[in-house]
Design a binder for these strands. Structure first.
Lengths: 206, 206
DNA sequence: GTCTATAAATTGATAGAC
DNA sequence: GTCTATCAATTTATAGAC
């Protein structure tokens, strides 16, 4: 009763914090800026979230849960065919990252200074990584794809999805002649191109 | 005359700074730690390099020149066959990164807060990126590889080389069951595996 | 050139009034 | 719950002696 307010200060703070931490990183973010953005006072940040570290924790776990784990988990559980799995995973993943281009660096920055944090969360989340191994090994056994270390295939998939977003400030000038629209289109194409690049590499022709 | 000293304070500072900046990043590095490591006083850092920013600049440009541009440039100029180019580039690049595993994040962190810095350096360095485009397009025309956007091929090559180092704190626990030796061997194998993965994807069989 | 001591700036956190 | 004012810690940078 009484909880149906427009939007609580606590929620406004979290929203502002998400924006700032993703954009500026953990150490680059200033509590004062978050307060300004949320339209409240700096002391109130500490009232609700105690410290900068705790506020960051709240932001990080929300982002991870919403954008990374839940969606990937669903795909792995649904797809059984190795080619469908590759197409679904790369397509969805690249789509999410294209719409949140700063997420990769945000996550990378965090696992850099706090290596155990994210891996632990991913293990706890029950992401069925073993299933992916099985699907790949099964496809090899049935002669659908060539003999490849499943770990190599998984690492390559993730690399091809994530790196272009991480390195875009280097790619755009050096490879795309500063043409941001061309790069944007390039990323859009990758939603299907990455899967085809991989499948071309591993599929066995009879 | 008189410059044949053991090793100057200026040089000792730079060496210590390279280690610290690469390991801790720009904002994570403390001038006091660099001074301690170099065995001199903090004030001397400012005597030689004026400010932290300027010291970082000296470190960054040295690392870029030594580890990135010069070696890549040589390969591009020497190799003419598209398959040799792919094999030489990936092999050398992965080898350099394996021996300097913190370099990728170091560079990424910098182009994140200073987007124009590295691209400018790479343009100025005269890296013959146009030659790579030509070699790829030429191979397509001669029916050696399938029709592929040269930019896609270049981005994929770089992604497959660089990302595993960036994401190793995530890969090792989630994909390699915390087996660091297995991951180390995996990276070693990639010096040839990456090229084969790519070539399998683009080579045309007659 | 190299040091000690200290200034100056930044920023996360808290005390206490309302 | 929310604010103003202030503290305390960290850290870069400089002044000035030797």
């Amino acid at each position: 009763m009484g909880e149906e307010k427009e939007i609580s200060a606590e929620e406004k703070i979290l929203q502002a914090a998400v924006e700032e931490f993703i954009h500026k990183g953990r150490s680059g973010t200033r509590m004062q800026v978050i307060a300004d953005k949320a339209g409240i006072n700096k002391a109130l940040l500490h009232y609700y979230y105690r410290s900068k570290d705790m506020l960051f924790e709240a932001v990080f776990s929300q982002v991870i849960k919403k954008l990374l784990i839940s969606k990937v988990k669903k795909i792995i559980e649904e797809e059984k065919d190795v080619f469908d799995l590759i197409r679904s995973f790369t397509s969805l993943y690249i789509d999410v990252l294209n719409r949140n281009p700063n997420i990769p660096f945000f996550i990378l920055d965090e696992i850099h200074r706090n290596p155990g944090r994210l891996p632990e969360a991913m293990m706890k989340s029950g992401l069925p990584i073993e299933r992916v191994f099985e699907i790949i090994q099964n496809a090899t056994r049935r002669g659908l794809i060539r003999d490849i270390d499943p770990r190599e295939l998984i690492v390559n998939m993730i690399s091809l999805c994530v790196f272009p977003l991480l390195g875009r400030n280097l790619m755009v000038p050096v490879i795309f002649g500063n043409d941001k629209v061309a790069f944007r289109n390039f990323l859009e194409s990758r939603k299907t191109d990455v899967a085809e690049f991989i499948i071309q590499s591993i599929r066995l022709r009879k």
